[in-house]
């Protein structure tokens, strides 16, 4: 082991005649290497894409939790038909809907439903898809084949198509609320997460640290949970973040078709859907909730993109 040097080395590649040769590869040996996540965090802090999307998401979550902070107008009371399709006036910056309700206030209060659907559908897909994908990748064999075929079956049905059929089932038709939409999106969202998880687990399964853990007597399930899964989370989290945005769009699409959230639940999808009749006379009632939805979805997709750049060492080099 070379003698520890005290002076700070500015450049790793130094002019050879000035610097003793060993200094060139004497890269601070006493410093602990950063973990994948710590290094990613160091990268992320400097990325404008990450900063913007995080600020937006924090704001959106805050709006969903405390809508009363942002608007004094209750969304469903004081709807005067005299205001039907009205233009913006002071205190009502985005005008009125066909029913004479305040558009801005409805958007603020609609945040909750859209975000809840997105977050819980993503969690559901992560739990089911992540578990099945990890088991398939780690144990392989017939379990892998069965789970892969099962995923293919759900994959072969397009999301909207499957959702239409599920939402017509008696249970779903009678209890139409946020949670039935969450279940529907989970049922058709898990195969993608399962595929990604399986791939990530496969690439980690035979790593040295897993072999080491196993030879120290760690059982297979314990090795999977403690060593393999934490090290294969990165790509799964990236996809899940992007999917959160896509689930919000899917909820809006289902509500638009009249089989998502019931009309009395305030959500952006319902607002867009009910605004379509007045698109030609008063396009702003459709465009404002659509804009709110798009900005939310965009923030999640941007966050996913930033995470992918930070977590993929291959992409970072360039």
């Amino acid at each position: 082991m070379p003698e520890k040097r005290t002076e700070k080395i500015e450049h790793y590649v130094a002019p050879l005649d000035e610097t003793p040769l060993h200094a060139t590869d004497n890269v601070a040996e006493d410093v602990q290497p950063l973990s994948l996540w710590a290094e990613a965090w160091r990268n992320l802090r400097k990325q404008p894409l990450f900063i913007i999307s995080t600020i937006l998401i924090v704001l959106i979550v805050f709006v969903a939790l405390f809508p009363g902070v942002f608007t004094q107008t209750p969304p469903n009371q004081n709807c005067l038909l005299a205001n039907s399709d009205g233009d913006p006036v002071p205190g009502h910056p985005m005008g009125f809907t066909l029913q004479g309700c305040d558009v801005f206030s409805r958007i603020i209060y609609g945040t909750q439903a859209s975000l809840t659907v997105g977050i819980f559908a993503t969690l559901g897909a992560l739990i089911i898809g992540g578990t099945l994908g990890a088991i398939a990748g780690f144990y392989g064999g017939w379990l892998d084949s069965v789970i892969a075929r099962l995923g293919d079956v759900f994959f072969a049905l397009p999301l909207i198509l499957g959702a239409i059929i599920i939402m017509q089932l008696p249970f779903f038709r009678e209890n139409r609320n946020v949670w039935t939409v969450v279940i529907t999106l989970t049922v058709f969202g898990w195969p993608q997460i399962a595929r990604i998880t399986r791939g990530a687990v496969l690439s980690v399964r035979n790593a040295d640290f897993v072999t080491a853990a196993r030879s120290l007597g760690v059982s297979r399930p314990a090795a999977l949970v403690r060593h393999v899964i934490p090290n294969s989370l990165a790509p799964v989290i990236v996809v899940a973040t992007v999917n959160l945005g896509i689930f919000i769009v899917a909820e809006a699409t289902l509500s638009f078709l009249g089989i998502g959230l019931p009309p009395d639940v305030m959500s952006w999808g319902n607002d867009i859907s009910s605004a379509q009749v007045s698109l030609r006379s008063n396009p702003s009632t459709l465009l404002w909730p659509a804009a709110a939805l798009s900005v939310t979805v965009l923030s999640f997709i941007m966050l996913g993109d930033a995470l992918r750049d930070a977590l993929d060492p291959k992409a970072r080099k360039r």
Partner: peptide, 17 residues
């Protein structure tokens, strides 16, 4: 990214209009 974030039915309505 913006295209991905806008629901297809909003795109449809706007294009149709």
């Amino acid at each position: 990214l913006i295209v991905i974030a806008i629901p297809i039915f909003v795109l449809g309505f706007v294009m149709q209009f």
